[in-house]
């Protein structure tokens, strides 16, 4: 197990290095010059030269790359061209807002999706199952931007119960501001978790070991949780761990609709402005989170299923 984890860790480091390299060269292979985008149209060639030199963009690409790697290892990812502040600082200032929304939405969808999915499987064709199927279909097919606007229209504009947009001023106000974005962000995850947990529970409940447990006289709650859900959880780990990561990274659409100051919006804006350092830090963050997520998933698999540990 230790060897296995070390291997995964090594692989994760290699993946991050690889991704960073690709991103570095991809951005610089484009035609657009960040200096040209940042400076006003009436800037002189001299201004242009100074700015280019300031950002280190005048040096040959391989040198730029080595400098970048050297600094990155020290935790310095360069300055944002737009904000003239360390790129990592710019990004991490906005990250908490995304985490706040993402974590809440993940737990909301996990609790709701798992309960509906599992109950649907246990009481097949019951009213929870019917409701769950409608919910799953809706969550999968209704686009978040439409749902967001409609919820806003109903609850904020017409009924006036909830704030239209923004992050609020802490405490209860923040909670009120979070309700609609969290619902929108959770739509698809709830649908997916409901469907997967329902189908993997149904598969598990059909299996011989479940029949055997009943033959032994094991009461239904134990059959459902200890025998069926434990087996179903393997599939759930596979989808839910990466899902959590993606939700943490914010959503451009939802952050834009609800003016939520998260990183999703920041990154899109930075990309259009050719603010490479910010985007690079963001991609490094994604790679880091996703590779760690897979390591977490592997550890969870090994905890649930001993077969993995013995391989």
């Amino acid at each position: 197990m230790k060897v296995f984890l070390l291997k995964r860790l090594g692989f994760a480091v290699f993946t991050m290095f690889f991704v960073v390299t690709i991103v570095f060269f991809l951005f610089r292979s484009g035609e657009a010059d960040p200096a040209a985008i940042m400076l006003p149209p009436d800037a002189t060639p001299r201004d242009m030269e100074i700015l280019t030199k300031n950002f280190g963009l005048d040096k040959p690409l391989p040198i730029q790359y080595l400098n970048f790697l050297k600094n990155a290892l020290r935790g310095d990812f360069g300055k944002s061209f737009r904000y003239n502040e360390p790129a990592a600082k710019v990004l991490f200032e906005r990250f908490p807002a995304s985490i706040q929304l993402g974590v809440t939405a993940f737990f909301f969808s996990a609790i709701l999706g798992l309960s509906i999915g599992v109950l649907s499987a246990v009481r097949r064709d019951g009213w929870i199952d019917r409701f769950g199927r409608v919910l799953a279909l809706g969550g999968m097919s209704i686009p978040a931007f439409w749902l967001g606007v409609m919820l806003m229209l109903l609850f904020s504009v017409n009924l006036g119960w909830l704030p239209v947009a923004g992050r609020g001023e802490g405490g209860l106000d923040t909670l009120r501001h979070m309700i609609l974005p969290v619902i929108c962000l959770s739509g698809y995850p709830i649908a997916l978790i409901t469907r997967i947990s329902r189908s993997s529970m149904i598969d598990a409940l059909k299996s011989d070991y479940v029949v055997m447990a009943r033959i032994k006289g094991v009461p239904e709650p134990y059959v459902n949780i200890i025998h069926a859900f434990k087996n179903a959880s393997i599939t759930l780990i596979t989808i839910m761990v990466p899902m959590a990561t993606v939700m943490l990274l914010g959503s451009v659409v939802i952050e834009t609709i609800f003016s939520w100051p998260g990183i999703g919006r920041l990154v899109v804006e930075s990309t259009f402005a050719r603010d490479y350092p910010v985007v690079q830090v963001f991609i490094l963050l994604i790679t880091f989170l996703i590779t760690s997520a897979y390591i977490v998933a592997d550890i969870l698999y090994a905890l649930v299923d001993q077969r993995i540990r013995f391989q």
Partner: peptide, 24 residues
Amino acid sequence: MRELRGNNISMILQDPMVSLNQLL
């Protein structure tokens, strides 16, 4: 019935490899 099963009446299934839960 649950009290009878495994206590007074018991049963052995066909395929032993899938009748045991691999995770327990």
